[in-house]
Design a protein around this nucleic acid. Structure first.
Lengths: 348, 348
DNA sequence: GTGAAAGCGCTAACAG
DNA sequence: CTGTTAGCGCTTTCAC
């Protein structure tokens, strides 16, 4: 039972078996111009017989690999599942194959995955890590088409697809204010993700939160909590917040996964169970009746589809940068309720 | 602003600039034997200067690509996130890059993704779709190392990693029976996933469910509902089940995502809110206090790590097949409660 | 309409 | 220790 490795058939094998040249076979498999019907038939029969499939990487050395590479941090965040779903659907009718390089959000940097994909000859790149440097992307985009998802860059070399975070947060804050909330806290990621002017979604959401609070005359109630990302981390951060004595009547978490962590923390603290919670992205879990999380819907599927079509346009020759902005939509659910006067700490 | 495509530096460029041969450069980048320190230094300087990175696909034409390909259906199912997490962690210290080919569970077939990866010269393949034919995999494994995750195959050409579904279901059913449940329904996927003898996890879980019911003298209470997979589909199926007049006191869903769909349906049916629900896999959501889903934990991270190390062993030369079985663990939560006598339909 | 020949970027013998 | 040479599997002019 020696598992003698079977080598796959090459274009040469097919050519010899069919009694034609390699070039002829190549034309047949590419559907290129200049092959007689009889030859095509013969060649196709042999291809079938030998179970021949062209090696994409060999093909790539001359031309395209028909592969699109996507770098994806944190597969656990369901919003990326929405994006991916949109992207794969958009690609269904296209001859391109999507491959994903997962990035361990804790360790790796995103650069590594992007470079690994480029080294593997993908025809185009989709970047999702908001932490890769725009200048680096700009440089990279001179060798390979790139679309960046989720960061508000005014790039010239690569395209971007983003949600309108400012208006999304505006709608959400408006909603909370209308419910009577004044002590609204914001739970977001560490400074690396929220540095002013970095163009990351979370930096914009934070800024929009603060701006709204100031405009509402609530500057003194601004309260920003931080966590490392992920449900558990948000859970812990919420407990810390409460332990610090803060008693917001509402918590706006920078994205749904965090918000769900907030909910889980609040559930275990009966004294805080009246706190309203809101998230962002509208991932599937948010809509579950047992969760009922108010959120801002970002059309992830649509954004995923946009990313793909922008990339295909690039591959088709477009050279000027396009920046697409998707419109968010408020989805109120049971996790946000009219403010309840809390004993003591409340100030109105 | 003509974005004149910048070509990347080749090994030839480096060799010329450093005044050495291509072979010398090749040795340097591979850390191979036979290079003087001075030459290494010179070459490395030029590599740095030119920002040279070897093209993996070109390298692949001669030897290995140091790429592992994983075919993944249904990214939305969080259990796969656990597996992926284990796999990427295991690969962190290895020189291999993992790439994922997502499979649209509705449309594509898994074959397509696996072949796409093989065509792209990955060194090894991880298959997760239980629907690809074992014989096909057996054939494929003669050209490229494969590890199949999640199906109980007794293959000779490829390795497998599975959970012990029979014992997992046994523990779960035992739990339900001890709570006093007799009318236990099972919600699973369509026949394609559950055909007897196919070795798929769902076929085994179904069989184990039926066996347990029979052993408990409850053969006449066996009730199997079907859905297409996914939370929504499970939700609908649950409503259909109730509409049919069935009144189980407990529903065992074939995996957690389905179970969560069941919960959402039951929430909207006050008359059925006392039905206990259990799932399988123990995805993160199951543990959320607002969900509290009883489940059977499968050590996904560990399984993901196993898959990777089996594949690396293959690449290192192992030729005999290994079949690994992970041990599941019951995780009781609030979604399963002692049976409540329902009016009418109950039979004890 | 068809095939010969060159070459994509790299590695792996082999000579020097 | 170093460089030359011959491919890996495919596409692509360019003659025939």
């Amino acid at each position: 039972m020696t598992p003698e490795a079977v080598k796959r058939a090459t274009i040469e094998d097919v050519a010899r078996r069919a009694g034609v040249s390699r070039a002829a076979v190549s034309k047949v498999i590419r559907g290129a111009y200049g092959v007689s019907a009889s030859m095509r038939e013969r060649v196709e029969a042999v291809i079938e017989e030998l179970d021949y499939r062209p090696l994409i990487s060999a093909r790539g050395m001359r031309g395209a690999t028909f592969t699109l590479g996507m770098e994806l941090p944190d597969i656990a965040n369901q919003f990326f599942a929405r994006i991916l779903s949109g992207a794969t659907t958009a690609l269904e009718t296209e001859p391109y194959q999507l491959v994903i390089a997962p990035v361990d959000p804790d360790h790796s940097e995103g650069y590594r995955a992007l470079e690994a994909l480029a080294d593997r000859q993908v025809d185009g790149l989709i970047a999702v890590s908001p932490r890769v440097d725009p200048r680096w992307l700009e440089e990279m985009s001179r060798r390979i088409p790139i679309v960046m998802l989720g960061r508000h860059d005014s790039s010239v070399g690569y395209d971007t697809v983003v949600g309108d975070d400012v208006s999304g947060v505006g709608m959400l804050m408006q909603h909370l204010l209308e419910l009577g909330h004044r002590e609204i806290a914001h739970l977001t990621l560490d400074d690396q993700h929220t540095r002013q002017g970095s163009g990351t979604p979370h930096s914009l959401r934070l800024a929009a939160y603060e701006a709204t609070m100031r405009e509402a005359g609530l500057e003194s109630s601004i309260q920003v909590a931080r966590c490392d990302g992920g449900e558990d981390s948000a859970h812990q951060a919420t407990l810390r917040l409460l332990a610090s004595g803060a008693r917001p009547t509402a918590i706006f978490a920078a994205h749904d996964e965090l918000a769900i962590g907030v909910l889980s923390a609040l559930t275990q603290r009966p004294d805080a169970s009246e706190i309203s919670v809101a998230g962002y992205d509208n991932i599937k879990q948010a809509g579950h009746p047992l969760i009922g999380l108010t959120s801002v819907d970002q059309p992830g599927e649509q954004m995923g589809a946009s990313v793909v079509s922008l990339l295909l346009e690039r591959l088709a020759g477009r050279t000027d940068a396009v920046h697409e902005v998707a419109t968010p939509r408020l989805v109120p659910r049971s996790s946000t309720r009219p403010r309840i006067r809390t004993k003591g700490v409340t100030r109105s």
